[in-house]
């Protein structure tokens, strides 16, 4: 007999359907929460958890969604990005889900958010101590491509046997003259565990090192949760003669002119015309709002790319 389970479900005004607050039942949330606390206590170590089926497909963010569902509360402001953008369809879908089942306030502004769920990017704007990042992780095991078996990789982590990882990176150098891993670039956390930072570009790896924010990573299908606490050492693996470096572009963002942000390439026509724009849409539009304009900012045919829309549509709603 458990008195707590008889909690009243939240009836969401939009649908009239009844779900528990933030969709998950309380027992599942407690299980996820306990896993999160152990993950924080053992930075970079993958805690197994009994991931539940979510009403979205595995591979589409079910790990991140279970994390968000277990941490979000009425005081939070939630932001969801996919590829750095708030308006990609999967980001929209996940944000809508939480508006519906947790009645949570949402935002596109990085600085306003208390919880940011992401797939493949860390925002350009520096994170703060008040923020929690939630990452969607497809394959949490950084050693998986060198060793397919969980029974083996678990031993390798236990014994701190990370030789295969260095061998793999070094083979890259032998073959290509450089480390050919560009995203999901492995990191060493707190000097102990090799960890996959999820498929963020290696450009974002340095943002994890001694970050003021808490970073939680969730893999729903693989049923693992892991974490990087604030102010924790996160070093991208490298070699003395081949130090870690991030990608750079010769171009700047066509819209806001930023020379320091991660850029997406956009194909403009069949004749090979292309431009580069910030992958972080919030960062890009804040810059344009404050007067920074890139070489292509004036072009009218790029309105959709700019995310420009009539003010009332993006205004207060609900």
């Amino acid at each position: 007999m458990i008195a707590q389970e008889n909690a009243a479900p939240v009836s969401t005004a939009a649908t009239g359907e009844e779900y528990n607050f933030a969709y998950l039942d309380e027992q599942t949330k407690r299980m996820v929460r306990r896993a999160v606390l152990k993950a924080v206590a053992i930075p970079g170590y993958q805690v197994p958890f009994a991931g539940r089926e979510m009403p979205m497909p595995y591979g589409w963010g079910t790990g991140g969604i279970q994390l968000s569902a277990s941490i979000l509360g009425p005081d939070d402001v939630f932001k969801v990005i996919d590829q750095g953008a708030d308006d990609t369809t999967n980001a929209v879908s996940i944000r809508k889900f939480f508006e519906r089942v947790a009645d949570v306030e949402t935002t596109e502004r990085t600085s306003e958010a208390t919880v940011i769920q992401t797939r493949h990017r860390i925002p350009e704007e520096p994170l703060t101590e008040e923020q929690i990042m939630v990452y969607q992780v497809p394959i949490p095991e950084p050693l998986r491509w060198m060793e397919a078996r969980e029974t083996e990789t678990r031993k390798m982590h236990a014994l701190e046997e990370y030789g295969v990882m260095h061998v793999k990176l070094y083979e890259d150098i032998a073959r290509h003259g450089r480390i050919a891993t560009n995203y999901m670039y492995p990191v060493m956390v707190n000097g102990r565990y090799v960890m996959s930072p999820s498929p963020i570009p290696k450009f974002d790896n340095p943002k994890l090192d001694r970050s003021p924010a808490l970073h939680l990573l969730g893999a729903g299908r693989e049923k693992r949760i892991y974490a990087v606490p604030p102010y924790t050492d996160v070093k991208s693996l490298d070699f003395e003669d081949h130090p870690f470096e991030v990608e750079t572009w010769d171009e700047c963002c066509g819209l806001c002119g930023s020379e320091t942000s991660y850029l997406d390439e956009v194909i403009l026509d069949d004749a090979g015309g292309r431009m580069f724009v910030c992958s972080d849409t919030d960062y890009c539009s804040r810059r344009r709002e404050s007067g920074h304009l890139g070489p292509m900012a004036a072009r009218e045919d790029l309105d959709e790319l700019k995310g420009d829309r009539p003010a009332q549509e993006g205004g207060h709603n609900g």
Binding site: P57, Y58, G84, N182, F203, D264, E265, S279
Partner: peptide, 22 residues
């Protein structure tokens, strides 16, 4: 299995861009 195979149709342009640059 269906989720992970089909997630490949989600946008991956950030990671693809990283490979493209390299």
């Amino acid at each position: 299995a269906q989720g992970f195979v089909q997630h490949l149709k989600l946008p991956h342009y950030v990671d693809f861009q990283a490979d493209l640059v390299m």
